[in-house]
Write a protein that binds this DNA or RNA. Structure first.
Lengths: 217, 217
DNA sequence: GAAGATGTAACCATTTTTGGGTATTGATAG
DNA sequence: CTATCAATACCCAAAAATGGTTACATCTTC
């Protein structure tokens, strides 16, 4: 077994780290190419025969998810492992919806990297333990034409409205006044938001809102 | 010349990458310890003799800048190189104000890592080319008693520590376990933080922490 | 040595959040 | 037409946050 691998990450220390980890795990993993951004990945795929690509999710010029989508449209047989600093449901679902076979968070244990590559090479999927729970959500959602639409996350209009106000620091009581609905209804919306986003504290909610550009810091 | 190095980054691939890079550069660099967050750094310094520490700027629990400040208060002879994904002026100026001797952006060339360590070991400062321009700004600011930490201040060491954990989404109970103090004491710290910052909700606290660079969303 | 800052710890009461139900209306999709 | 979804509203209980007070030991600073 000789697995040909392409590594894509804009940080040289990360690429170096992955290469070293793969070397330390044995002889079967061979890094045949490296890229600094998504467009470079697509170009390199014309030159090299690659079995598995490891794509950082946040690369300049063409991000990892978009790269996944385009790459697999051209070459469905290639396996993609997404490498990400984020372990939120949305990123994982997007990755799976776009056809990635693996999802590794960056603080994964060393052995995980090899396990993930071997698994996707065999045709399985591999998700880091901290995000494995989103696999169910994804397949469940797929029944209702999920994954097809770009909006993998499905907050309703009112929920987004409440989310923004929560993230901006309003209390439920204040939001009720603001939106002219009752305190109870606000709480229901918040419950639904938290359930959908798998968030359990307002602090996490604020960081989510900032990351998603719903509010600016 | 034998330089003893501590590497701190919450991502194992990054730590591995730096170690590999240092090994490839020759025999004089020895990684004697690794840490996943700032508090672990401070603990490890009691055990190991370290010449140079490489600190990621955005670590959980205690970020790189705050770690720098505390570390150098205890051990002024140690040299600190900040490793950052961000090349903004504020981060660089804060790093220098807190006493860091080097500032590396994460997409630095391989040789830069060794150059930075050697330079700070010799007592010089090293800034990545893309941020070197901020050195001037810093020295200009020094005239006005910079280094004293203007922005976040008013807050004591413990208060900043609690602030970061609160902003990262820990509950008071979890923070108590994390810091090995009682629930009551955590609440006192939080009360003081909120009073000093004139903040009344955890949501505002998170946004404040992000705005001040204490955490990164 | 006194004064002030810091970190620790406890007590209290009130408000807010979090999370679990159920139920009705209107709109929309199959 | 009907089944589902969105939005509304209410009930409940446990957990957590918020905000106030007091107290004491340590440490630095003047």
């Amino acid at each position: 077994m000789r697995i040909r691998i392409l590594i894509a990450d804009d940080h040289v220390v990360v690429r170096q780290g992955i290469k070293t980890i793969l070397n330390s795990l044995g002889e079967q993993h061979h890094v045949v190419a490296e890229a600094e951004d998504g467009r470079e990945v697509l170009q390199l795929m014309d030159i090299h025969d690659v079995d598995v690509t490891i794509l950082d999710i946040s690369m300049p010029k063409l991000n990892g998810l978009e790269t996944t989508r385009r790459l697999l449209k051209q070459r469905p047989q290639v396996k993609v492992v997404i490498l990400s600093m984020f372990d939120d449901r949305i990123s994982v679902e997007k990755a799976l919806a776009y056809g990635a076979s693996g999802y590794l968070v960056k603080d994964s244990a060393i052995e995980e990297v090899g396990q993930a590559i071997d698994a996707v090479y065999r045709g399985e999927t591999y998700l880091s333990p901290s995000v494995a729970k989103y696999r169910q959500t994804f397949y469940h959602g797929m029944k209702n034409d999920y994954g097809r639409t770009e909006t993998v996350i499905n907050l309703t209009d009112k929920e987004r409205e409440v989310l923004q106000l929560l993230a901006e620091g309003f209390t439920s009581k204040e939001i009720a006044v603001e939106l002219n609905i009752t305190f109870n209804t606000v709480n229901v919306h918040r419950k639904h938001i938290m359930k959908k986003l798998n968030i359990h504290k307002s602090a996490d909610l604020v960081r989510y809102a900032i990351k998603e550009g719903i509010i600016r810091s």
